[in-house]
Amino acid sequence: MKEIKAFIRPNKVNDIVHHLKDAGFENMTISSAEGTGKLQDEAAFVSQKFSITDSEVAKLELVVNKNDVDKVVHIISEQGKTLNPGDGIIYVSDVNQIYRVKDGLKNGN
């Protein structure tokens, strides 16, 4: 199993999630976040919580079979891009073990 974590523009979340669900990827977590990076956007703001934050981002997380990684990354990239700097980044990590919260049973791997 693989975890895919994508930091994307908030205004692209609905398109990405819609296409992921249409492709059969129903389970994901979406969070609002703040970040900072190389890009200094004209619309940058000073966060009220963190002094170095300069942009709003959305964080999308899902765990998929390793054979589905390329498909998910393609959907996120195609639906999330604006062709402008600061479109985001996608990380793929190994998931060694998965346990259900309700009973502690190991799933998958």
Results as ranks from 00 to 15, higher is better:
His74Arg: 08
His74Gln: 12
Ala44Gly: 13
Asn96Gln: 08
Met1Val: 10
Asp41His: 12
Ser31Lys: 14
Met1Leu: 10
Lys5Ser: 13
Ile52Thr: 13
Ala58Pro: 06
Ser55Phe: 05
Gln40Glu: 15
Asn11Ile: 06
Val73Trp: 07
Thr36Arg: 15
Asn109Thr: 12
Leu83Glu: 11
Lys2Gln: 06
Leu62Arg: 01
Val92Glu: 03
Ala33Phe: 07
Val69Trp: 05
Val46Ile: 12
Ile75Met: 04
Ile75Asp: 05
Asn96Pro: 00
Pro85Met: 10
Asp22Tyr: 02
Gln48Glu: 13
Asp94Thr: 10
Gln97Asn: 11
Asp15Ile: 02
Asp41Phe: 11
Asp94Gly: 06
Asp68Ser: 09
Asn84Cys: 04
Val13Trp: 10
Ala58Arg: 07
Ile30Thr: 12
Ala43Asn: 15
Val72Gly: 02
Asn67Asp: 12
Ser77Ala: 13
Asp54His: 15
Asn96Ala: 10
Asp87Asn: 04
Ile98Asp: 05
Asp15Lys: 14
Thr29Val: 11
His18Cys: 12
Lys2Val: 00
Val101Gly: 03
Ile30Cys: 08
Asp54Ala: 05
Lys2Pro: 01
Asp15Thr: 06
Val63Trp: 02
Lys106Ala: 10
Ser31Leu: 15
Val72Leu: 02
Asp54Ile: 03
Thr36Leu: 14
Asp15Cys: 01
Asn107His: 12
Val57Asn: 14
Thr53Ser: 08
Glu78Leu: 02
Asp41Ala: 15
Gln40Gly: 06
Val69His: 07
Phe25Ser: 04
Ala44Trp: 07
Leu39Trp: 00
Ala44His: 14
Glu42Gly: 11
Met28His: 05
Met1Asn: 08
Ala33Arg: 00
Glu42His: 10
Val101Ile: 15
Val95Asn: 08
Thr53Lys: 02
Pro10Tyr: 01
Leu62Cys: 03
Ala6Leu: 04
Leu83His: 11
His74Lys: 14
Lys102Gly: 05
Pro85Tyr: 14
Pro10Lys: 00
Val17His: 07
Glu3His: 03
Ser51Asn: 11
Tyr99Lys: 12
Ser77Arg: 13
Gly80Ser: 06
Asp15Tyr: 00
Gln97Ser: 12
Ser32Phe: 11
Lys5Arg: 14
Lys59His: 04
Lys21Glu: 05
Gly86Arg: 03
Ile16Ser: 08
Asp87Gly: 04
Asp68Arg: 13
Ile16Pro: 07
Asn84Gly: 00
Val13Arg: 08
Lys81Arg: 09
Ile8Trp: 00
Glu42Tyr: 09
Ala43Leu: 10
Pro85His: 12
Ile4Met: 05
Lys5Trp: 01
Lys102Tyr: 15
